[in-house]
Nucleic acid binder design. Structure first.
Lengths: 150, 150
DNA sequence: CATGAAAAAGGACGGGA
DNA sequence: TCCCGTCCTTTTTCATG
């Protein structure tokens, strides 16, 4: 299998990660291709799942989510079947859920408005998923969601 | 000052987070506004910094970044001035850098292709920033960058 | 992959509640 | 102030070579 994304496609992806609304015309100019050629490639990248979609990048503070935290969780009963991710799937405050190697089983990234909300959220997570939690509060974010070097 | 984002704006932001390329026409239909009214609001949201920009969401594996890890770092010399974030700013593998409360000072999220690359990256981080590291490797990601409930 | 034409969307201006 | 309609321009989309 060659999941290889060739040079030109990488360039296109890189440009679209930096500006998801760049027009195909401009993409063409930047890559030296015609508009329709770029369009074709983008559609194939979307179909192949390389490009999953497009999203507006928002300032969490501006929408009232000024508290970010990482929560590491570990099941109370280590022998129970692991359906933690499923149990937490409908908690909207959880932005990311990673299964990890190490002391704990999962790392969650959450965003809430206030410390009290964080307290409530922790309670909900504990009871929903049957886990103990270890919380690391984010003080400031130098950068996040930085475009990967492709 | 009211950083308040009112109801209608929240709806628009929510829609654009879910689909950053949605047309103003469709946004208008979804919100009951005219195309130009939506357009005006979006531009104001962009100017106010609520919407920071737009990005293509890509599958990291598809571009050869199949190993994700969280690295907690702590300075060797706790009395040294904290310029860790600056020192690490030009390391492209670091996708996010959060200053945190807790045992360690920063949490980094990194993406690389292979375990060997992770090893090299850890060495670079240690020497660049003068820190010790604790690394948590991601085994699988149930979800990440999930749209926040606004 | 390029060209060219039809359809759609973007962007700017003036008017009205 | 906020929203709407209309203009013209640009972009998208699709057919064809």
């Amino acid at each position: 299998m060659s999941s290889a994304v060739e040079e030109l496609d990488r360039h296109i992806v890189e440009l679209l990660v930096a500006d998801g609304r760049m027009s195909y015309t401009d993409l063409g100019k930047a890559t030296g291709l015609s508009t329709s050629a770029v369009h074709q490639r983008v559609r194939r990248l979307e179909q192949r799942g390389v490009i999953r979609g497009y999203a507006a990048v928002i300032d969490p503070e501006a929408v009232g989510l000024s508290l970010t935290a990482f929560i590491s969780v570990k099941p109370f009963d280590p022998s129970a079947p692991d359906d933690i991710a499923d149990r937490l799937a409908d908690v909207p405050e959880i932005e990311a859920c990673h299964s990890v190697a190490g002391d704990e089983n999962y790392i969650l990234k959450v965003r809430v408005a206030t410390p009290i909300e964080l307290e409530h959220l922790l309670g909900r997570i504990r009871s929903l998923a049957g886990v103990s939690t270890r919380t690391t509060v984010v003080l400031s974010t130098a950068y996040e969601a930085r475009p990967p070097r492709i």
